[in-house]
Simulated scan of single mutants.
Amino acid sequence: MKAKTIKGESIGVIETELITALSDGFSPNLAFVFLSIEQDIDKLTNLLDSRGIQIFGATTEGGEICNSELDKNSISILLLDIDLEDFKILIEEVGNQGLKETTKSLAQKALKTLNNPAILVSGSGAWKDYNLEKIVNGFKEVLDSDIPVYGGIAGDNLLLQESFVFTNNKKGNHAIIIIVFNADKIELKGVSFHGWNSIGTAKTITKSSENIVYEIDGEPALQLIMRFGGIQKLPDNLYDIQTEINHSLMIQLLREKGEPIMRGGVVNMQDMSLLFTGFMPEGAKIKFCLLPDLDTIDETVGVIRNFKEEEMPGPDAILLFSCTGRQISFGPEFNREFKEIYSVWSRPIAGMLSQGEIGKARGGDLELHNLATCLVALKEK
């Protein structure tokens, strides 16, 4: 498998970069495309389609990753030449059936498409159905646990209005897209890591409904978080409220098996509840986490170096999904994470800042993550 990355701040730059990439006889038939919501999706897909290149695309949550760099309002593309029989791109509108049933439908098609599948996934329209864990549960109900599934949720530069996933002839603002690889020919392995350390004792969710938490340890959820985070008074607007909460305490959901996972919450001022991206069942145990220090970047890179040594010493290409919340937490140092990840292999990397990350937790099951980095390595056998 040959792989190249191209990037640009406009379709015109991408067209020039594409011509250069193909000038040595390179003939890709697959493109992973990550682009800002401000870019022209239709124009870009027409450009790639005219070259006979199939597209797996998603809009980003405020950042596009290409090799060691993170840009904004740009386009990042990973170009691959893979036997056409070894992959298939599928996309479905969510519609009235919901995230879980749409994912189940795609997973069933994946099993019929290839005997030994490995799957990458993205979804759009998170704010139309905020419980994104339903995507994960859809896969779990259909696929064996040893089938790899990784990916990231599309965004829209934190506007929280409309995101897209797309392929050559179709795009959707409330849709799920998967690419199914033939795992007999294409090796796909991934690793997910967040690095947040918990503090204090575990607390219990005492009142919730699916992904909405009303009470923790018998106390209104927002009230308890304000108390433990030392927040005396909330700001007037929702954006500043969200920033204040996220800069004070984050929530970690404990699992019976594997590492705990992070959960991002949105404040509902009307009833002091918190809306999360995944299920938060009554009786579940949580812990609070302070913002990480910069050592977390070093820990993340260390986990990826171990992944290289133990799982994937020489990939042909890499995809990277990193939560936009990490950028908020790490500030200017965030770019160092990408530079150091790239140095692990110095192979072509493309990816995006995402609204949620999908992959197996270390030592655990397939999960929807928040505040995590999810790296996926591809190698032709």
Rank of each mutant, 00 (worst) to 15 (best):
K128F: 14
F193S: 14
N182S: 12
L120Q: 04
N131W: 03
G190N: 07
K207M: 11
N137P: 00
T206N: 10
A118Q: 12
K203P: 00
T204K: 15
I176P: 04
G151W: 02
G138M: 05
G151T: 01
N157I: 01
I205A: 03
S198H: 10
I199R: 09
K170T: 11
V136K: 08
G123F: 06
V191I: 15
K104W: 03
L159T: 10
H194M: 03
K203G: 00
A110R: 09
I177T: 10
G195R: 11
E162T: 15
L114V: 14
L114Q: 14
L158Q: 13
A183H: 14
A126V: 05
I178S: 07
L114T: 12
V142C: 02
V165W: 05
N157T: 04
F139L: 08
I199M: 11
K170C: 00
A175F: 01
E187W: 02
K112T: 02
D184W: 00
I153P: 01
V142G: 03
D156M: 12
G155V: 02
A118S: 15
E133D: 14
I178M: 12
I119C: 04
L158A: 06
A107H: 06
E141I: 00
G125W: 06
G155N: 06
K109E: 15
W196E: 04
F164C: 01
N115C: 01
V165Y: 09
L160F: 15
V180Y: 02
D156Q: 09
H174I: 01
E210C: 00
V180I: 13
D146H: 11
F193L: 11
V165D: 07
K207D: 15
T113V: 08
F164V: 02
D144V: 04
S105C: 10
A107E: 05
G125L: 06
A126I: 07
K170F: 10
P117E: 08
V165E: 10
L160E: 09
A118V: 08
T113W: 00
L114D: 10
I199G: 02
N115M: 05
L158T: 09
Y150V: 11
V121Q: 04
E141W: 00
T201A: 14
V136L: 01
V136M: 04
I186F: 05
G152A: 10
G172I: 03
E187H: 10
K109F: 05
L159Y: 10
L114W: 07
S198T: 15
I119Y: 07
T201N: 15
S105W: 02
A107F: 05
T206H: 05
F193E: 13
G155Y: 05
I177C: 04
N182L: 03
N168F: 09
G125Q: 12
F139Q: 09
K134E: 13
I179P: 05
A202Q: 15
A183M: 11
K140M: 12
G125I: 03
L158H: 08
S209I: 11
G195I: 07
E133L: 02
D129C: 05
N169F: 11
L114E: 10
G138E: 05
T167K: 14
N116Q: 12
I179Q: 06
S124L: 05
